[in-house]
Design a protein around this nucleic acid. Structure first.
Length: 324
DNA sequence: CATGCGTGGGT
DNA sequence: TACCCAAGCAT
C-alpha cells in the first residue's frame, strides 16, 4: 500500500497546525529529549510543561549531573509527577550510560525504563532515525485509520511501521502525536479537518475504534496513619515498597503498637488500582528507642524530603503548612 | 499477558 | 459528579 498522498497532507497539516512551541521539540539533545519522554509516559503534556520539565532540567542539566546525584535528589525533583520508578530508572540509566546516552534504538532499549516506544522517540527526535513512534495518540489514530476494534501490541507496531513516512520520519512522528492530541481526540474527533480523513477506514464511526474496555472496580483500602510529634519534629520513614518507593511517609498505627485514640481527620487518596481512605492520628510522644526505622523530621524541613501527595495533604491538614 | 504503578486534566 | 485516561514499562 502506498500512503504518499496522506504523508504529504500530514506534512502540510503539521506545518500549519503542529505544536511547534513544545520545548523538547526545540532541541536535539538526546538527554533533554530522554527526560521529556520519561516524564511524558502516562502523563499529560500540560502537567509536564507547567510544573516539571523546566525545573528538573535546571536542577539536572546533563546526564552526568544525574549520575553525580543521589536517588533522593532525583525523587525530590520528581515529587508530584507520579510513577516514581521512572525517577529510579533515570538514576540507574545515568550510572550505566553517563556521560551520554546512545541514540541507536537497539542500544536504548537495553537501558532500564526505556522500552521500544521511548527508544524510538529518542532516536527519531534527536537523530531523525526512520523508526516509528507509538504512543497513546498514535495508537488511537491507528485503531481508527485501520478500523480495528482491538489489536495486540505487536499488531500496533506493524501498523505503525506500515504507515510510517520514510521520507520525512521526523516530521511524520511529531505530526502523528500532534494529530492524535488535537484532532483525533478520544471523545470528539474532528474528522472534518483531519488530513487522513480521505483514507481513514474508521471515518464513519471513529468512536467504535478501539472498542471500549470494561472498567474494573477499584477496591477501597483503609489505613490508620500515625503522625508522631515531639516538639516541632515528626517521625517519618522511607518507603521500601514498589508503590511510592523511596519516598518518605508517616508510619501506620499497626506498625507502632500504640493505643488507638480517635482519628482527627480522614483523607481520601486515589491511586490507579485502589482508593485509599486514611485516618489520621496525631500523637504527642517522646522520642523513644524502639522507633529506629525512621527519623525525626522538623516540620520546617519537611519540604526537603521527597514525599508523596498523600503526605503533603497530611501535613497541610494537620499543620496548615504548605510545602511549596 | 494481565497487572501494578500516581496524579491530575478534561468532560 | 464520576469517569476516562494520559508521549509506557517491567514483571
Amino acid at each position: 500500500m502506498n500512503y504518499s498522498d496522506i504523508h504529504i497532507q500530514l506534512r502540510q497539516w503539521y506545518k500549519s497546525f503542529g505544536r511547534h512551541d513544545l520545548p523538547w521539540r526545540k532541541t536535539n539533545d538526546p538527554y533533554v529529549i530522554y527526560i521529556s519522554e520519561m516524564m511524558l509516559q502516562q502523563t499529560q503534556v500540560k502537567t509536564v510543561l507547567d510544573r516539571f520539565f523546566f525545573p528538573f532540567l535546571k536542577r539536572f542539566p546533563t546526564l552526568e549531573s544525574i549520575k553525580a546525584s543521589s536517588i533522593d535528589e532525583i525523587l525530590h525533583a520528581w515529587q508530584g509527577l507520579g510513577y516514581y520508578r521512572r525517577a529510579r530508572y533515570i538514576h540507574a540509566c545515568a550510572q550505566i550510560a553517563s556521560p551520554s546516552l546512545p541514540t541507536d534504538p537497539k542500544e536504548l532499549v537495553k537501558l532500564p525504563g526505556i522500552g521500544k516506544s521511548t527508544a524510538h522517540a529518542i532516536a527519531a527526535f534527536s537523530k531523525h532515525y526512520p523508526v516509528a513512534v507509538l504512543d497513546a495518540n498514535v495508537k488511537r489514530i491507528l485503531y481508527r485509520f485501520f478500523a480495528k476494534t482491538e489489536a495486540k501490541e505487536r499488531e500496533l507496531w506493524k501498523m505503525a511501521e506500515i504507515l510510517l513516512d520514510h521520507e520525512e520520519p521526523y516530521i511524520y512522528n511529531q505530526a502523528m502525536m500532534d494529530l492524535g492530541a488535537t484532532v483525533c481526540l478520544p471523545k470528539s474527533p474532528k474528522c472534518e479537518i483531519c488530513p487522513f480523513a480521505s483514507r481513514c477506514m474508521g471515518r464513519e464511526s471513529p468512536m467504535n475504534y478501539p472498542q471500549k474496555r470494561v472498567l474494573k472496580k477499584r477496591p477501597i483500602k483503609q489505613k490508620k496513619i500515625a503522625v508522631l510529634q515531639c516538639g516541632t519534629k515528626l517521625f517519618m520513614r522511607k518507603r521500601k515498597t514498589e508503590l511510592l518507593g523511596g519516598l518518605w511517609e508517616f508510619p501506620e498505627m499497626e506498625d507502632l503498637d500504640l493505643p488507638v485514640g480517635n482519628a482527627l481527620h480522614k483523607i481520601v487518596q486515589e491511586y490507579t488500582h485502589f482508593k485509599l481512605e486514611a485516618e489520621l492520628f496525631l500523637l504527642q510522644t517522646k522520642k523513644s528507642d524502639h522507633m529506629t526505622d525512621g527519623e525525626w523530621i522538623d516540620i520546617a524541613s519537611f519540604g526537603k524530603l521527597a514525599t508523596s501527595t498523600l503526605e503533603k495533604k497530611i501535613l497541610k491538614v494537620l499543620f496548615e503548612t504548605d510545602t511549596h
